[in-house]
Design a binder for these strands. Structure first.
Ligand SMILES: [Mn+2]
Ligand SMILES: [Mn+2]
Ligand SMILES: [Mn+2]
Ligand SMILES: [Mn+2]
Lengths: 219, 219
DNA sequence: AAATTTATTTAGATTCATCTAAATATTTTT
DNA sequence: AAAAATATTTAGATGAATCTAAATAAATTT
């Protein structure tokens, strides 16, 4: 049995790897789990001893097949719980990440299995992230960054890149929600901000900072 | 914020007190949380320092008002989660206690609140235990031990006294379930076992060991 | 290629929850 | 009331996860 902390590290390595597919550095991991590099070195050794990661001193760390499997199950649990909180308990998408961080560590195969069934095997969580199935498999939808769309094009919001409370609440304020249609009206070359129209309705100005956090399926 | 361990101790004191309303001894508590008396003494001091318990060395410990409030909320969460697992996720009543032991420590006022609402404010959990409301209030139903019923009397099963997996599965095997009607057919004076009829249907022999674990509402 | 900067590891300390063994207090028995 | 048994506390140690500071390795700059 793994401790909650060991699980946290495994998932952190997995998530860093998602964005940057190579050896994960001690510092990157330390930043991700909000601890010191020294603590990371300790934990990495522990995980390596359990053969959940491959570790080369000074070079970095990567998950073993078993490590990937565990991390994937954690991601699965996390996203299922988020889906549950939004769909069944009427939580906002900005509130669920933090609670799911706790729930994902509840042990019980059957619990995940039944939760998945109860939710009718959802494929994506409230932030558009894919939910791995019991075997750890999931599919990615066609998606590209909103910032890549040209003037005149439009797309459907299918995924957000951050789970940060304040970011999601900001989207709420702009009335940007999952599945909405975004049409590019104008583009400022200087700072790459864009004027967009949402659901053929209201128009808002989006900074580059935000447009690079939104994934759309082009229309 | 309390650690999971501190919460466990508070709830343990609460539960011991439910059965035996007086100062809780170090040993009783040690037995309940499955640890050594020495560890209990340490933890008690910690809780006393936080004013969650009153502690007199060599005499025992009892919860402060704040301690009671916290313990009650834990019991509330535990029983709500058990109810959720049985009613929504199709778990057996024999499976839920262990999982709820974990879920009860998930922090979030809103989570409990919404869960309660989702379940439509249940008053009792799958084992017939009362669920405290958000203010910590709950009502006890009229109930007495099955072992107190006389031959000829009958009652409805409203509560079981143990959550042990093997005990509950044994009841399953005997087809004794919450809400069933139990009619006393015979009573053996020697070992206080009883022959009972369930739901006017099948008859089984019940040992004293079991009949003192079942609460019924007399018909 | 040497010097400097940055990243990583090691060493040593701290806190939490636990343990065993020893000391002490309380309760029960004789 | 003394002795014996039991319960509780204290003392000292351990493992997990963390920290800071120092040592060392690797990468970058000059
Ligand atoms: Mn999340
Ligand atoms: Mn998510
Ligand atoms: Mn229970
Ligand atoms: Mn219960």
């Amino acid at each position: 049995m793994l401790t909650k902390t060991e699980e946290r590290y495994l998932k952190a390595i997995y998530k860093i790897n998602e964005l940057w597919p190579s050896l994960v550095s001690t510092n990157a991991l330390a930043h991700k789990v909000r601890t010191s590099a020294a603590s990371v070195t300790d934990m990495i050794k522990k995980l390596a001893a359990k053969e959940l990661v491959f570790y080369e001193p000074y070079k970095g760390v990567r998950l073993s097949a078993q490590g990937v499997a565990i991390a994937t199950q954690l991601v699965r649990k996390h996203r299922l719980w988020e889906t549950f909180l939004v769909q069944k308990l009427d939580f906002e998408w900005s509130e669920v990440h933090e609670i799911a961080q706790h729930l994902e560590h509840i042990p019980s195969e059957k619990l995940v299995q039944q939760l998945d069934r109860f939710l009718d095997y959802p494929k994506f969580d409230p932030h558009g992230d894919p939910i791995p199935n019991a075997e750890g498999k999931f599919t990615l939808r066609e998606q590209l960054l909103l910032s890549r769309l040209e003037v005149g094009q439009s797309g459907t919001l299918v995924r957000v890149k951050s789970q940060q409370n304040d970011f999601l609440r900001h989207l709420d304020k702009l009335q940007i929600s999952m599945g909405c249609t975004i049409h590019i009206l104008e583009r400022e070359n200087y700072d790459q901000s864009m004027l967009i129209q949402i659901d053929n309705h209201h128009t808002v100005m989006l900074s580059k900072q935000i447009s690079i956090m939104l994934f759309v399926r082009p229309a």
